[in-house]
Design a protein around this nucleic acid. Structure first.
Lengths: 193, 193
DNA sequence: ATTATCTATAGATCTATAGATAATGC
DNA sequence: ATTATCTATAGATCTATAGATAATGC
């Protein structure tokens, strides 16, 4: 059942997309290769024609997801109606509820720390570039100050989603998400006005 | 090889301590019952005399760890030399590097979200109490403002550790940890002064 | 006599591979 | 002829249990 080169490339993309979604929903260990391939519409054994191992897939899927996400968020800020940071926070927190979507750091954060070093190496560059490209939306005397503000803002968003996910009480979850959202909005108002 | 009631209680504590450490280092799925019992100095099969299942152990271990941690952090703040929040941030971020120690939210955050609902229910109350008890160290017009500030500060600390863990580059990790630490210190200086 | 712990193993699950199959592309 | 995909399975690992063992505590 051989397929054309183009179709094979599509299959690879389907596997990567399924991986990005399932891994965020259930973690690396919560998804078997067989289930992943089923979601991608292919059979179990075919997986190893596309990737050398599950570890290999994890590295490729994360690479792709991080680049896609940072690009998307940069777009949200560039095209924002009001304050770019407030628009980003709203978009970021809004996706957090939908399983298998949203940012990879809150949903895979702990798993990322346990990846082999050579996979984690690839994270530094796109993440640092992301901070560089959003730093301009923050106020601060120096570029260093603006970069620092972007790191703090991103960290608080990640933490808010981690906390919100950990508790079952929806109103408490919302309180924590809104606390961070309101704090970012307030800070932008202060520095802008 | 029956042991006394007291010794059995000790064994239970040993299992819970081993769980708290191993789970934070490698996640729930990264630790087998056999390995856990070996670390606790007992044999595999004996586990089921103490807990009905691995799920049961996870719930008990998290319950205990959350109460222990919040108590410890409250102490750090109460007994702080300088600003309590700065002391907390220093202590919190300082432990983040040591594997199997530190806060459960950055090291288990993603795994927490995937726990059954009845386990996650137990998280809300101690977490909310924690915010209540540290709110007094923040400045703000109303209690609601102070509680909000405590949520935002905690979220930014969690996010900082998640980000720092995800990248291999140590100097980049430190940059992110220090950005959050410096931002909290600055905010306390502003509101205190 | 009761029961906490131990050894051994059943049953399920998961990664990775081997060998067969059938469509592409020279 | 080449090769992407499929079926089937080997080998490893993990949770949970069954039955034996030996020390406690009435």
């Amino acid at each position: 059942m051989r397929v054309s080169k183009e179709v094979m490339a599509d299959h690879r993309t389907q596997i990567l997309d399924a991986a990005a979604q399932l891994f965020r929903a259930r973690g690396f260990e919560g998804v078997s290769v067989a289930e992943l391939m089923k979601q991608a519409g292919l059979t179990h054994g075919g997986f190893y024609g596309h990737f050398s191992s599950k570890e290999d897939l994890i590295a490729r899927a994360l690479e792709r997801l991080l680049l896609q996400s940072t690009k998307k968020w940069e777009n949200v800020m560039e095209q924002a109606d009001g304050d770019p940071i407030v628009a980003f926070a709203k978009s970021y927190l809004g996706m957090a509820h939908r399983s298998g979507e949203g940012c990879l750091f809150p949903t895979l954060g702990a798993d990322l720390a346990r990846l082999p070093a050579d996979t984690r190496v690839n994270f530094a560059k796109p993440l640092s570039s992301f901070f560089e490209s959003i730093a301009k939306f923050f106020r601060g005397k120096s570029h260093k100050d603006r970069r620092q503000a972007s790191i703090v803002a991103f960290a608080s968003l990640i933490g808010a989603v981690v906390l919100a996910q950990a508790v079952e009480d929806k109103s408490f979850s919302n309180e924590m998400l809104e606390a961070v959202s309101a704090s970012l909005a307030k800070q932008q108002r202060l520095s802008t006005g």
